[in-house]
Amino acid sequence: MSDNALRFHFDVDGENFTSAGQASVKIKKSLRELGVDAETIRRVSIAMYEGEINMVIHANGGDADVIVDERGIEIILSDHGPGIANIDQAMQEGFSTAPDNVRSLGFGAGMGLPNMKRYTDDMTIESVVGEGTTIRMRVNF
């Protein structure tokens, strides 16, 4: 990571489903101002939004950090939620542990983590049950 990387930090509010996505929208705006191409912005902001939604649904919020350097964009999402017991299972399209009230909003389809992987070049999940989850994603220019 070079010294002149740009860093952004957001607190993701776990209480408010309606406002989920504020960090993603701000990042979208910042990347546009930096002159990043539209498809890269789309990939980063969707991956980040899915992460935000996950933190609201499962972890009562968390932290989102975005680092932009000359090679690409790194997104780090960390929470102190329940953790993911079986990451391979969580990565399968259609697998979800989201409650019913979330489904009525159009989420909980089991596509969040798969979308995050789909739209990023690299993604790692570190999770400890009972302690929390940290997801790192990278989108290269």
Binding site: F17, T18, S19, A20, G21, S24, V25, K28, A38, R42, S45, I46, Y49, L105, G106, F107
Partner: peptide, 15 residues
């Protein structure tokens, strides 16, 4: 047929 606030976020982020 969805009309909640998240629709706007999804429309915006999906462009």
């Amino acid at each position: 047929i969805m009309t909640n606030m998240n629709v706007i976020a999804v429309a915006s982020l999906s462009d």
